[in-house]
Structures are given as structure tokens and as C-alpha cells.
Design a protein around this nucleic acid. Structure first.
Length: 454
RNA sequence: GUGGUUGUAGCUCAGUUGGCUAGAGCGUCGGAUUGUGGUUCCGAAUGUCGUCGGUUCGAGACCGAUCUUCCACCCCA
């Protein structure tokens, strides 16, 4: 072998046994989505950069994978631009397409583009890979799958409630212990307003998002470093120190935010959502978390995040409401809300906690040992009948040594082996061997089908 | 993007202050058993020591670059 081939940083190959587990996650999530009446769509991997840029904040733009224009992309570039080395300016001229960064923005684009064919509210799910030019770490990949569900064209908070139930269902089915954190962007906006730093909402939310991780002292010093007035930081302290259950927190916020119109709106929304949540039993823990901010710029109302309680992997699901994403594409006044399940992180959590079922129906139920041409001819019609009876079955393709064939069957976790050599064929029968128990019996092909049908 | 870290057989990893022919376990393959896997026993194969360059009589080990891994920051699923 010359040079070993490799794949780009932050990407992965998936082996058959990994795919069995990944598909288990995808299938579970998909079945829950369908249970709630969502329909699937797909969009292209690449979008026009004009669609993607400016939707994820400054940081997001940097993390977009950009695709070079075809042909001689330098032919129309001024020497001046090259010498200047302004990479942002130059990038705009040599690249007009990029890999999608999430599924929500392409979805908004899709909705605007297909608005004539959609009857709102539109409920869609979408399971596809996304790409981010981030530096990889554990649980952080450059190519990963998101499983998005969104309802667009409805302002009702019942949609938020549905999404919370979907999250609970998914993680119950996957057996993952989770906590769902809920907050509302309008409350964050209200807080910024009340403390007199209305314009600095992004800096403020980014800082208090770290409260859990770095503690109140460090949050304060980060805010100070960002140029937030010490007076404002002082006013923020009681908010960061909110305690009690959800109702108590909401009541305190009502008092704190009473002079902020947007803050009041946020509290009203939260109250409605939590009222709904209290009407149903949930297995996951659900909490109001004032410190939850979420980085994506387009959220305007409810925001969610789900964390696994038993690992350090970080958030495995996130989402929120966006009031004007379609507006950017020329179709204002359409509100949407959605959440996104991070399949790869869910995989990592389940793997780490050994939550995958022990046995998967990932392989054939039965395999025919191949003794040679004559025997193969004898088995072929039986094999066909088995498949017509919906029994996953296969024949080993070469007349290799029995030992090798048995070993191969064993490694593929195939439960039954059919042995039909000269003696069996003469009797018009086959040997069925149970690989778990080692038992074997001489039976007719008819009996074989009825036994395996059970 | 900033700072650090890692790379030796298919996999997990040893390899002393630079010194002869680079090792182990697991797996793979062959045999014991030419019609019976998973257990047991016996045997075998496997490496441009990530890559390129440098220092040295001599480099898996030291230096530089590059790629990759993981970690922190940033940000996020």
C-alpha cells in the first residue's frame, strides 16, 4: 500500500454496526415526528451564500464552508483586490455557494420559495447533514446530522407545547435521562431594557448563557469587559440570582420586568407554555432557565435546550421560535417554531451510557451454507420462498470451507444456518441449525419455512 | 480563529539518557476437525514508527514544517 487514504478533519466513516445504531436513532426520531403529524422534506446540501450569510451572527458566517466558483474564479478579479488580501471582500467575489449550516434557514428559504404550494400552518421534519467549519472536538464534528421539526405559519404557543412533548417522547424511547431548559428571548430583551442596555442584548445574553459554566463572578467581569456599565451589571444581579420553582420565578420576573413591554410579553408567553406543560405528565425534567440564551440570531420568542443528565456532552437538542426568518427572504409576518435533535451527540451519549438495545434485527435470520453448484441449485427455490414469506435470508456466495462459512455467519449474528449437502438433498430435506443453542434438526423445506415464520 | 496535546501492526498500547534484527495483547489467517461456528490447543503473517525535511557515525526517540487526534477558549448539535 502506498499512501494511506484519509478523510477531512472532523468527518467520519460509519461502519455497518455503527449504522445499525445510527439508524435506530433516526428511525425512533422519525417515528415520533410522524406520530405528531409532521411530513418530511429535503433541501440541497449547498445553498447560495446570500441565503446563508448573516443569519447565524458574525461567528456563524466564519464557520460557513464556502465553495469556490467553478472555472477560473480569478479571471474577473482585480489585481488590486488580490494585493489587498481582504479575504472577506475576496471571498464574496470567488464564492457564491456554501454548505448549509443548519436546516432552519434553508427551510425558511424553502417556505418562501414554495409558498404557493404550502397550506399554513406547515409542519415539516427534515433529517439531513449540516456542516460547520469549526475546530473539531469530542461531540463536535464538521459534518453532522440534525433532525429538525418545525411548525411555520402559526403563532400559537400550542406548537411549543407539542415540541416539548416530542422531545419527551424521543428521549423516553431512547432511554436518555434529560433536562429540558426553557427561556424566552423577549424576557432577555426585557432584562436588557430594564438594566438600561437595550442595544447590548447580544453581549448580555452571550455572557449570562455561561452562568452555569463559569459562575456569576466571571459573568460579571465578562460583561464589564464588554463595556456594560457597572450600574447595569448591578441591576442584573437579582435577576441572575432568581430562585424557587417555575411559578415563583415567573412571579418575581413579573415584578422585575413590569416596566418593559417586551418583557411582559415574554412572561405572558412563558406562563401559557408552562400552564400547558403542567397539564401533562413528563418524564424529562423541565425547568425555566433565565440564563439560557442560545447563540443563533434568528430566535425571537421561546428558546429550548435539552441536555443529557448523565454525561458531559452538552446540549443534544436545541430550538426556538423565529418570527421573521421568512421576512428576510421577502415574506414577512410568518412565525415559526422548531427544535433540532443532534443525532451524532445523541449517539455519543447513548454509546457512552450503553443505552443501545443489546440485539438489533440488523442481519439475516438465516443463511444457507454453500456446498457447490448442485447444492446451490437445490437451495435457490427454497431461499426464494423464504424471502417471499418475508424472512430475511441469504446464501453464502462461494463454496468455501464450511468452517469459514459458519464463522462468517456467527460474526454476522445470524441465528440460523441451513445445511443442505448431498445426503440431505437425497432425502429432500435440509438441516436447520440454531446457532444460539447448537441444536440441529433434519426437516423438509416446508417445515423450514413454517419454523422460521414464527 | 487563538493556545496546548496526540500519532508505533487491522484494534488497544509497550518501547529506558539517541545504539544491534521495533514488541505484547486482542483480532486476522492456517492447522488439530477435507460436513459444523461460538470454547480449547498448536502455528503463521503483518509495520516507509502520520508525512516531509533537518541534527547525528547512528533517530521510533531530538529539532522544524505539515496533516491528524484530543483538550481549553470562542461558539455550538
Amino acid at each position: 500500500m502506498a499512501q494511506k487514504p484519509s478523510i477531512p478533519k472532523g468527518t467520519r466513516d460509519f461502519t455497518p454496526s455503527e449504522m445499525i445504531r445510527r439508524n435506530y436513532i433516526f428511525d425512533t426520531i422519525k417515528s415520533v415526528f410522524q406520530l405528531y403529524g409532521f411530513q418530511s422534506i429535503e433541501t440541497p446540501s449547498i445553498e447560495n451564500l446570500s441565503t446563508l450569510m448573516g443569519k447565524y451572527g458574525e461567528e456563524g458566517d466564519k464557520l460557513l464552508f464556502k465553495i469556490l466558483n467553478s472555472g477560473n474564479f480569478l479571471s474577473k478579479i482585480d489585481d488590486k483586490d488580490l494585493i489587498e488580501k481582504n479575504h472577506i471582500k475576496l471571498t464574496n467575489k470567488i464564492s457564491e455557494k456554501g454548505l448549509r449550516y443548519d436546516l432552519t434557514v434553508p427551510f425558511a428559504r424553502y417556505v418562501v420559495q414554495h409558498s404557493n404550494d404550502i397550506s399554513f400552518p406547515f409542519k415539516r421534519y427534515q433529517i439531513q447533514p449540516v456542516w460547520r467549519a469549526d475546530r473539531p472536538q469530542k461531540g463536535r464534528y464538521r459534518e453532522f446530522y440534525q433532525c429538525d421539526v418545525d411548525i411555520i405559519g402559526s403563532k400559537s404557543l400550542f406548537n411549543e407545547f407539542e415540541l416539548v412533548q416530542i422531545a419527551d417522547d424521543v428521549f423516553n424511547k431512547l432511554n436518555i435521562n434529560t433536562v429540558l431548559k426553557i427561556n424566552n428571548r423577549k424576557i432577555l430583551a426585557g432584562i436588557a431594557e430594564i438594566i438600561g442596555e437595550k442595544e447590548r442584548i447580544t453581549d448580555i445574553t452571550v455572557a449570562i448563557d455561561k452562568l452555569d459554566k463559569i459562575g456569576i463572578e466571571n459573568v460579571n467581569s465578562e460583561l464589564l469587559g464588554k463595556g456594560i456599565s457597572s450600574d447595569a451589571i448591578k441591576k442584573l444581579q437579582p435577576i441572575l440570582n432568581l430562585e424557587g420553582n417555575t411559578t415563583e420565578k415567573i412571579n418575581q420576573l413579573k415584578e422585575i420586568l413590569k416596566d418593559s413591554e417586551i418583557g411582559n410579553k415574554g412572561i405572558e408567553e412563558l406562563s401559557v407554555l408552562f400552564h400547558n406543560i403542567e397539564s401533562v405528565d413528563f418524564k424529562m425534567e423541565i425547568q425555566l432557565d433565565i440564563a439560557l440564551a442560545r447563540g443563533l440570531n434568528y430566535y425571537t420568542g421561546s428558546i429550548f435546550e435539552v441536555k443529557s443528565k448523565d454525561t458531559e456532552i452538552g446540549s443534544i437538542t436545541g430550538g426556538g421560535r423565529y418570527d421573521n426568518l421568512t421576512g428576510i427572504f421577502g415574506m414577512p409576518g410568518i412565525s415559526g417554531v422548531g427544535i433540532s435533535f443532534g443525532a451524532d451527540r445523541i449517539y455519543d451519549v447513548m454509546n457512552q451510557l450503553e443505552l443501545f438495545p443489546k440485539e438489533f434485527p440488523g442481519s439475516s435470520k438465516v443463511i444457507f451454507i454453500n456446498f457447490g453448484e448442485k447444492e446451490q441449485d437445490f437451495c435457490t427455490p427454497i431461499l426464494r420462498k423464504l424471502r417471499q414469506a418475508n424472512i430475511a435470508s441469504e446464501m453464502y456466495p462461494d463454496a468455501d470451507k464450511i468452517k469459514k462459512q459458519m464463522k462468517w455467519a456467527n460474526r454476522k449474528d445470524i441465528n440460523y444456518v441451513v445445511i443442505a449437502g448431498e445426503q440431505e438433498i437425497e432425502a429432500g430435506k435440509v438441516i436447520l441449525k440454531n446457532m444460539k443453542t447448537g441444536d440441529q434438526q433434519l426437516i423438509t423445506p416446508q417445515q423450514l419455512i413454517s419454523i422460521l415464520s414464527r
